[in-house]
Every structure is written in C-alpha cells, then in structure tokens.
Design a protein around this nucleic acid. Structure first.
Lengths: 151, 151
DNA sequence: CGCTTGCTTCGAGTTCACTCCAGGGTTCTA
DNA sequence: TAGAACCCTGGAGTGAACTCGAAGCAAGCG
C-alpha cells in the first residue's frame, strides 16, 4: 500500500537520535523516508537518476541504507535548498563515483556553489529590506485608519 | 521573429538609468523585457494569469507599460526569488485589485513572507557551513597530495 | 513599395522534480 | 499461519513555470 507511516515529515528537528551505530546501520526505505522527509518514491527515483551511490540490498532485494547513505542524503538536502538543480548534484555524485582523480573538479564545484549561496543570501536580504519597507507602510496605514475610526 | 534584442539579460546592474520620468513612462514589451530580464512571453503570461494589473495599450493594441508596472514587476521579481509560488503572488495581486479593505490581509501575507525569508536565510547559512567544512576538507586533501607529489 | 522588425493572440510544447499506479513478493505481529 | 503492513519494478502522470509556434497586423526606412 506504500503509505509513509510517520506523519508530519516537515519537522526535521529532534530526530537525529535514532541513528544506529556504524556496523548495525541498516535502514529500510521508509525509515530513511521518515528520517529525511523525502518519500520512498523520491528515494527510489534519486537512485534511478544516479543521485545515490549503489544502495545495499537484503537477500530478498530490499534496500538497506547505511549511515553513509544518510549522510549523503543530508548533503543532497542541503544542496537542494540552495536551488542547485538535481542534474548538477548528479554530476557531483558521478565525480565521487569516479574516484580520487576528480578531487579538483569537486573542489571547484563546491566553491562555485558556495559563491551561489552567498549571492542568494544577499538577494534574500535585499528582498527582506523591500518587504520591511512595505510592512512599515501597511502598519502606518493601519494606524491611520484606526485613528480615523476613533474620531 | 520575437528575439529579445538585448543579450545578457542576467546583468541586472547599471540599468536603472533609462527609466523615463512619470508622465512619459510608456515602455514597449521588449523594453520591459530588457529591463526585468523576463522574456516578452513571460510578461504576457503574467498578465494572462492575473499577476499584472491591466496594462495600458497603444491605439493599435500594443502594450505600453508604466513606471508603476515596472515597480510591480520589481516586487514580483523579489518575491519570486524568495521561492514564493506564482499562485500566491496572484493572490496578492487580487487583494491589491480588490481595494483598500484588503489591507489587513495583505499585511498578514507580507509578514508571513518575511518569516519565510528569514527562515530561508537561516537554512542557507546552515548550508554554507556544511559547504565550508567540505571545502576545507578538499583543500586539505589537495595540500596533502601536493606534499606527496613533492617528496 | 517592399523589407525588416516588432507586436498581437491562443494554444500547444517543454522542463523539472517529483508522484503515483499496477501487480506482484516479503516481513512482522497476533 | 493469517493478515496487515511493507517493499519491489517499470512506466505513466502531475503541477508549476515557463517557452515556443503560427498566422497575422503595424510601423519605420531606403
């Protein structure tokens, strides 16, 4: 039936407790879903498009995620909310798979991403300023109306 | 043929000069496109979905944008890069069209958006921290390799 | 006058990032 | 050992936000 048992995937806090110690780190797909806030569908899709390394399987073919996989998903989550397109993350994943000789390229990619993030923060701060000006305007208007009403 | 004459729409800086004074503020769609970095297609689409107020027309039916319209597009642009869905901006545009009695609702919407933006900035700063840790790691690896190479 | 360029409409097409379905096998709990 | 809950695959579907195309006016220019 494929329901993601746990409701309320939005609350990402206070969760990181139930990570099992390395060695016994075998999570089912729905555990990982609860953990990351992604759906099982999305996790499988990430794998299909090459955004995940090869995931371990149980003897019957079910996925068993490790702590490493969780770490990777964490990074992916962070990169995702910088607005990085999934295709770029796939590229990064490929570099990781290709081995040590891609260090330089990965490094460059990370630095470029860092610049992007800084730029985005600056943009958002600009937006915040505009928003604050508008909010002040409305607060003033509201006060003026209240005054008028009490006359 | 509908090409957006001016190349390099990304550089949004140093542009705000050619805004004509209020009264003679009549811009063609392609001028606005150059101005905002949006395409003419997108500008027409914004109008279709109700994201723009009614735009003036020339005697032959061509759009003539005003400074007010430019200001509105500026706000839309800012809101867009906070990740606000277009549907929400349409809602805001509707409130503006409906008149003064929607001040309260607009005010609330702006304040909610402000909170969103603050949250997003915080997220991005978290991401920045992760990125910086990774970048340090790669920089170290690079130095280690260089050392090894020079032995 | 013809040419080029730009504008018009409406509807269809594209891209991205999921999201869901059908039809089956597996695992846990009472 | 039954039944509920979970997991598998491949492929199709969805919603958001554009993006493009076709066919046809309109304006400026050599």
């Amino acid at each position: 039936m494929e329901t993601t048992g746990t409701r309320n995937a939005s609350c990402a806090t206070a969760w990181h407790a139930d990570r099992r110690p390395d060695g016994q780190d075998k999570y089912t797909i729905s555990e990982v879903a609860a953990f990351t806030g992604l759906t099982a569908h999305t996790l499988r899709w990430y794998e299909r498009i090459g955004l995940m390394p090869h995931i371990d399987r149980s003897h019957t073919g079910q996925r068993r995620y490790s702590n490493r996989d969780l770490d990777w998903l964490d990074l992916v989550g962070k990169l995702r909310l910088t607005g990085m397109p999934v295709a770029d993350m796939v590229r990064y994943a490929e570099l990781v798979r290709e081995g040590d000789h891609t260090y330089g390229e990965r490094f460059a990619l990370l630095k470029a991403t860092r610049e992007d993030v800084l730029a985005r923060i600056a943009e958002l701060q600009g937006t915040l300023a505009v928003l604050d000006r508008k909010i002040d305007f409305y607060a003033d208007a509201e006060r003026a109306l209240a005054l008028e009403g009490s006359r």
